[in-house]
Simulated assay, not measured.
Amino acid sequence: MNRRNFMGLAAATVGAGIAGVYAPLLAAGHGAGGVALAHHLDVARFRALRRSARTSFGEIAYAQLGRGPAALFLHAHPINGFQWRGAFDRLASVRRCIAPDLLGLGYTRVAPGQSVAPAAQAAMLAALLDKLGVDSVDVVANDSGVAIAQLFVARYPQRVRSMLLTNGDEELDSPPPALKPLLALAHQGRSTDVFPGWLADKTSARRTFGGAVYADPAILTDESIDYYFSPLIRSAEQRALVDATLVAFEPNPLAGIGPALKSCKAPVRIVWGTADTIFSPESPDRLARAFGNSRGVRRLAGAKTFWPEEFPDVIAEEARGLWQA
């Protein structure tokens, strides 16, 4: 197939399916105009930080930078730990920053037959921390990583010193209705169909995916698109795992978690982008009320779901404040 035919096929796939999932999210959003892109580690430097830990769950890819008490960064779906490169730049002087690629995503290699459901993700994190000799962590999470963070603290409360949670799942909004079309595609084994087209036409990736989850889609550089989406289509088995990570959010993995969160003694801070078109506007307040030691909610005007990647200075400011409290 020549390039012109491939691009035509990719465009048809976008028009017929997955890009349609992102279109209403993009149309409903309100961008934060004039936002300057933050300084970040580039792909080459971040890749040099990446390691792999062998566990019963598989070969878990993770990046690590800094010294001191450990901070665990949990990324959004369908991207990977590269999302936290800006936070690494700013917090490695005070924390041992660890950003794993979750099961079924990024550069992690999942063991045959291993579940990639949110509860299994939480168990994997405990195994990874054991492997790295880490007893307790400060958790920072975004999007589906917020669901996994809640399951982790519910199961291993003694391992969590604090939690900084951004736009993501909470008990009454998991999975959010806006993702139902994407979940339907995952059930059909098609949630990754658009990724080859995005890799070939990165402007399309920025317009559809980027426009839905970033205030300024320019943060999604060509090298970021390659780093995020290339590993997800490396094999048919890997593509099936990506589908499985979505399917596992039905039924709601957070149902009944309320009592465990209410008994959590760790301080929890919520920072929420107000232009999010995926999660409910009521979610940050419900999430704050769910925890027994909530430090309240901060709202970021004009920020969308994946804002931590764009505004790492806010992550650093809030994390330092939480960790010093």
Rank of each mutant, 00 (worst) to 15 (best):
L183Y: 03
F6H: 01
S280M: 06
V314F: 04
A290H: 13
A303P: 07
C264T: 12
A70G: 00
R320P: 01
A111V: 14
A70I: 01
A92W: 04
P259W: 07
P112Y: 13
Q64D: 08
G133M: 11
V160M: 06
E170Y: 14
R286P: 01
A32D: 15
R207P: 01
G17A: 14
P112G: 12
I257W: 10
V146N: 08
F229G: 03
A27L: 09
A184R: 10
L41A: 07
R207C: 03
S230D: 09
A215M: 10
R289H: 10
A70W: 03
S294V: 09
G113E: 11
A275K: 09
P112I: 15
R234V: 14
A63C: 04
A70F: 01
R159T: 06
H30L: 11
G31C: 09
V134S: 08
A303N: 09
E223Q: 14
E309H: 03
Y22S: 05
P312F: 12
P217T: 05
L129F: 06
L165F: 12
R269K: 15
E223A: 13
Q158N: 11
L91N: 08
A10L: 02
R320N: 07
S280F: 06
P231W: 04
W323Y: 13
L25N: 02
V194A: 14
Y228L: 05
P284R: 11
V14A: 13
R109K: 13
F82M: 12
F291L: 07
C264R: 07
G296S: 09
V116G: 05
N5S: 04
A48V: 00
S294F: 09
F6W: 04
M7Q: 12
T192C: 14
Y22N: 00
W272P: 06
R206D: 13
V146R: 05
F291H: 10
V134H: 06
N142A: 10
H77I: 03
L9M: 06
G321F: 02
L25M: 15
A27I: 00
Y62L: 03
A200H: 03
G106Y: 01
D130N: 13
A92C: 14
I315H: 06
T277S: 14
A19I: 00
T13A: 08
R206A: 08
R50M: 09
S174M: 15
F46E: 05
P251L: 06
P196A: 10
A53M: 04
R109P: 05
V297F: 03
L185R: 11
V146K: 04
F82W: 13
F311H: 14
L182F: 09
T108M: 07
A92K: 13
V268D: 12
L254R: 02
P251N: 05
R90S: 10
D135I: 09
D42F: 07
